[in-house]
């Protein structure tokens, strides 16, 4: 019985960028085959994409599944991808779509729930323990889904208005409106909190 093999990949890049043995240029996505693309993009973006997906799904394990699917989809599509230089945008779009699919399948009541309680002294608690961060994130998690999505894509994934519009399939005007409404709600929430003894 084959035991599940876990990647150890305790490995290091050899001679640095340049043309590798199998003829691809490590810096030029146009020369990559699908396997290389997945490997390189995984190394650079896996963690960040999981974090992005987790903003949508509320927890990490579903987020990992969503991002894994996005990489598999990228691999499948690689030869037909028009603009390989924008592979990251493709991944991000697939992640957002996948995460929203997950949410659609969840009960509406669940949709806006905050992140589950982290394990005691977990890294998450460590990072989120700052009181201000907690306030902001709680307010964010209470916003309508579309506002929250726009704010996450703008202020976490650092996308432009145009990219957010394309990712979510809405107009740039709608992106602005959702962002301003969301921020206004956060601002009001934070001010109210600060005024409370």
């Amino acid at each position: 019985m084959l035991r599940a093999r876990r990647a150890v990949a305790d490995r290091q890049v050899g001679p640095g960028p340049g043309v590798a043995r199998d003829g691809h240029d490590a810096d030029d996505p146009r020369t990559w085959d699908a396997d290389t693309a997945v490997t390189v993009l995984y190394a650079a973006h896996w963690r960040r994409l999981v974090a992005l997906a987790a903003e949508f799904t509320g927890e990490t394990s579903t987020a990992e599944e969503v991002v894994q699917e996005a990489f598999v989809a990228l691999h499948r599509r690689w030869r037909r991808l028009d603009d390989r230089a924008s592979a990251v945008a493709y991944l991000r779009q697939a992640v957002v779509n996948g995460a929203r699919d997950v949410l659609r399948h969840r009960a509406v009541a669940d949709r806006r729930r905050p992140l589950p309680d982290p394990a005691p002294e977990g890294p998450e608690e460590r990072a989120v323990r700052s009181a201000e961060h907690r306030l902001v994130l709680a307010a964010l998690d209470g916003l309508p889904a579309r506002q929250r999505e726009v704010l996450v894509l703008r202020y976490s994934a650092d996308l432009s208005e145009q990219d957010i519009a394309e990712t979510l399939g809405i107009s740039r005007g709608a992106v602005k409106t959702h962002a301003h409404r969301g921020l206004a709600a956060l601002r009001a929430g934070l001010t109210r909190q600060e005024g409370t003894p």
């Binding site: 990949a9 963690r47 202020y155 934070l190």
Partner: peptide, 20 residues
């Protein structure tokens, strides 16, 4: 404040490896 809080939450995400 939102950007910093989101960055902190993203930093806390420690996904397992799924390359395999």
């Amino acid at each position: 404040a939102l950007r910093d809080a989101l960055a902190a939450r993203a930093d806390a995400v420690q996904p397992t490896e799924r390359l395999q």
